[in-house]
C-alpha cells in the first residue's frame, strides 16, 4: 500500500496503468487506426454573480458519424468542482474518475480537504500522463475545470492544453470543436453587451450558455443542437458557495423558451 497519501500512486502500486505506450503505425492525427476515435464536442464555462455556470452539448462523434446524442460531458468531481470534457471521452471519463477518487481519498485519508492548487496540479499530472495517447491524436483530453474557491469566495475557471499546462481565465472558457464558433462571441458579449459575465444573474447566465451552445451547433456539425422533437437538453450545472447544482431538464426547457424562442 502507498504511504504517500496519493490515490494515483496507490492505484499504480496495485498494478493500474494508463495506456502509456505509443501504438505502432498510428500517426499524429489518428491516421492508421482501424476506427474513428470517439470525441466529445463543445463545452463552456462562464462566471456569473453567484459562481460559475458550466455547460456542454450532448453529442459524441466518431469521424463524421454521430455516435451518441445523450453524452454528459460535465462531470461532477466533488462538492465544489466539476470537470467539463471535450476530446476523447474514454480517457476523459477515466481521468475524471481518478480525480474524483483522488479528492475524496485525500479528504478521508489526510483528514483535510485538498487545496485548489493541489487539485489543479493533480489534473495537470493526469493530463501529462495521458500524453502518449494525445500525441497519437486518439486520446487527447482538453478539459475545463471549474470550482468554487470557498476561501476567496469566488468561482474559478481553468482550462488545460494537451500537455497539462493549466491556465486560469477570469470570466469564461470554451473548448471543443464548436469552441471556434463561440469564443469570439463570448469575448464580445462579455465586453460590450453592457453586462459583464460576472454581473449576470443565474437565469441570464444559463440562458446565455444555451444560446452559445445553440450558436456552436449552427456552425459546427459535431455539436449537438437542442431540438424539440428529440428533447435532449444540454447539460448545465452551476457551482456556488453552496456547492454544485444540476439545472433540471424542465427548467432548461423553460429557459430555452425564454431565451431562444
Amino acid at each position: 500500500m502507498s504511504d504517500g497519501g496519493d490515490f494515483f500512486d496507490l492505484l499504480k502500486s496495485e498494478g493500474y496503468q494508463f495506456p502509456a505506450n505509443v501504438i505502432a503505425g498510428v500517426e499524429g492525427d489518428g491516421k492508421g487506426l482501424p476506427f474513428h476515435p470517439t470525441e466529445g464536442t463543445t463545452i463552456l464555462a462562464l462566471r456569473y454573480q453567484d459562481g460559475v455556470v458550466v455547460a456542454g452539448d450532448r453529442r459524441a462523434t466518431a469521424g463524421n458519424a454521430v455516435l451518441y446524442d445523450r453524452a454528459d460531458k460535465v462531470i461532477p468531481i466533488d462538492r465544489h468542482s466539476v470537470m467539463a470534457i471535450s476530446g476523447s471521452p474514454a480517457m476523459a471519463f477515466e481521468i475524471a474518475r481518478i480525480l474524483e477518487h483522488s479528492f475524496q481519498y485525500h479528504r478521508r485519508r489526510q483528514l483535510q480537504e485538498m487545496s485548489i492548487e493541489a487539485k489543479l496540479r493533480r489534473l495537470s499530472l493526469l493530463i501529462r500522463d495521458n500524453l502518449p495517447m494525445a500525441v497519437q491524436g486518439i486520446g487527447a483530453v482538453i478539459p475545463i475545470f471549474a470550482t468554487y474557491d470557498t476561501r476567496g469566495d469566488v468561482g474559478r475557471i481553468y482550462f488545460y492544453d494537451a500537455l497539462g499546462a493549466q491556465f486560469e481565465v477570469t470570466d469564461f472558457a470554451t473548448t471543443g470543436s464548436g469552441a471556434a464558433a463561440i469564443r469570439g462571441v463570448m469575448y464580445y458579449t462579455n465586453r460590450w453587451s453592457g453586462t459583464p459575465y460576472p454581473e449576470l444573474s443565474r437565469d441570464d447566465a444559463v440562458g446565455l450558455s444555451l444560446r452559445l451552445l445553440f450558436t456552436a451547433a449552427e456552425y459546427d456539425s459535431a455539436t449537438g443542437r437542442y431540438e424539440r422533437s428529440t428533447d435532449i437538453p444540454p447539460t448545465v450545472k452551476t457551482i456556488t458557495s453552496e456547492g454544485q447544482d444540476d439545472i433540471g431538464e424542465d427548467e432548461l426547457r423553460d429557459l430555452h423558451t425564454r431565451f431562444l424562442d
Binding site: 500500500m1 502507498s2 490515490f7 496507490l10 492505484l11 496495485e14 493500474y16 474518475r97 481518478i98 477518487h101 475524496q104 481519498y105 478521508r108 485519508r109
Partner: peptide, 14 residues
C-alpha cells in the same frame, strides 16, 4: 484506518 480507506477506494475505483 488508512488501510481501510485505501482498500475501500481501490475497490471503489476498480
Amino acid at each position: 484506518r488508512q488501510s481501510a480507506v485505501d482498500l475501500a477506494h481501490v475497490i471503489g475505483f476498480n
